[in-house]
Every structure is written in C-alpha cells, then in structure tokens.
Amino acid sequence: MGIWVALVLAILWGAAFALACRLTSPSADGLMPGDETDSPATAGSVAIKALSASRAATGNQLYEAADRTFHMGVGVYRRQAFTSWFTRLGQAIEPGGHVHLHSEGVNELVPWLYLATRADPHNVEAYVVASFWLAGEGGRPDLAERVLKEARANNPKDYRVYLEKGRLALKKGALAEAARAFDAAGALWKRDSGPDKAQAQLDRTEMLIYRGLLYEEDGDVPRALTCYREILVLFPGRVGIRERLTELTETGQPRVAPAAMRQAIMFQRQHVCEREDH
C-alpha cells in the first residue's frame, strides 16, 4: 500500500512541478486567467507547454549537475545568515574547496550534458560545453564533431553551434572550414542573437577576432580591419584590438603574428577556469 501512496505522491509532485516550471518560465502569460485556455483544443497545448517548460527546467538541472561534477561534487557557495552545530557537521562531511577534474577526467561531465540535451534538445549551451571539453582535455575531437552535428540538426538556426564548430576547426587546424563556420555564425547572429544580449556581444566579438585573424593569415588585411572595427563598435575599450588596428593600418604588419595570436586566445580560453576568483 505504501508503494502505491508513494506512486500517487510522485505523480502529483510531477504535475505540480510541470505547472510550477510553466508558471515561473518567462513566457507564462498563456496560463493566466482569461487566456485561451478555455477551449478543449488549447487545453492540450497548455499541457504541452507545461511539459516543455519542465523539460527545459530538467535540462538546466542536469546542466548544473555537470558543473558540480566538474567541481568534483563541491556545490555552489551560498551566503548563510548563521552557522549552527548542524551547518558545521554538514561542512565536515561535504566535499569542499576549489577543485576541478583534469585531463581525460573531464569526460565524466559529458553524460550529464548528454542527459541535458535529451531532456531539452534546444539546450545549445549543453551541446557546446560537451563539444568544448571533448575536443580539448577530453581528447576526443571526433566525438566533439558528432555532438555538434547533432546540435546543428536540432538547432539549425543557432549561431552558437557554428561558433563552436569554428573553434573546433581551429583546434584541428582546418582554417578554411573554421572561416566558413565563423561566417555562418556571423550571418545567423545578425538574424537572431538570442535573449542574452551581453553574452551575444561577447560571442560576436570572439567570432570577429577569429575571422579577422584568419583574414590576416590569408593576406586579406582590409577585411580583417573591417572585423576589428566592428569589434570596437561593440567594445570601444578593447585596447589590444585598437593597437592591432593601428599597427595594421600604419605598417601593414602586426607585432604578433595572427597564428600566434590565435593560439594565445585559444590557450587562454582553455585555462580560464584555473583562476581562483570564479
């Protein structure tokens, strides 16, 4: 009997969870009183909306599990109003400190990202992060390519997939392929840069930097300059870009070769998590 009670409670909880996800999602207006929920036809769509919101929430939760796995079970820091005997005991048994998975160990977070993409195939961030680690320390660029292929099939109009494809091509040294991917990413970015405007600007800057460097390597300095000028429109305070622009304009020859610059940026991106302040 107790098992049946547990089952009923689980079903009720699942329904409440789906509804809560829908009500707290940014596009919850459709469930408000007086909306189109009265007709039987739209009642079905409300259920579907509720379920899709809960899929997205589950996907995000699994994505957070990937982050916890990367930090070897250490959860996020929360400021506490007080400490007690219980909190001290809790801290004594919970893993703590700033630790990461290293080298092939990073592959341990891929299953969570896989599950996140199964829960929500439009969770592009999960695809991109999986591809990044597989291609880098995970040592499986072949699988990274496979991940991006699937991401592109599920999200053909998302610029982030092409941006990551470009990065992956750069890692492999396939410069022409990278250039094509950055061009595609740029075109898609102009059509829809996504809801997070700040991140979208950073992404646009990254694709412009890589594209500019690739133009330089091809000897097409005028187009490289166009890319750098566009970056300065987005971020006028980028001193490094401004200096490079000046060097290219005045001497036609930058102080740091484009290939070396490209490697430096990629190396910096790979080790960004080694800082203690994040």
């Binding site: 796995t69 592959n107 341990e108 977070l109 891929v110 299953p111 969570w112 896989y114 599950l115 999986a130 597989l134 499986r140 699988l143 496979r146 991940v147 699937e150």
Partner: peptide, 9 residues
Amino acid sequence: FGLGQVVSY
C-alpha cells in the same frame, strides 16, 4: 555521444 568508460553519472 559514443563515450564509454565514464562512471560518475
């Protein structure tokens, strides 16, 4: 994604 030999999950 074709990855084997992972056990944490």
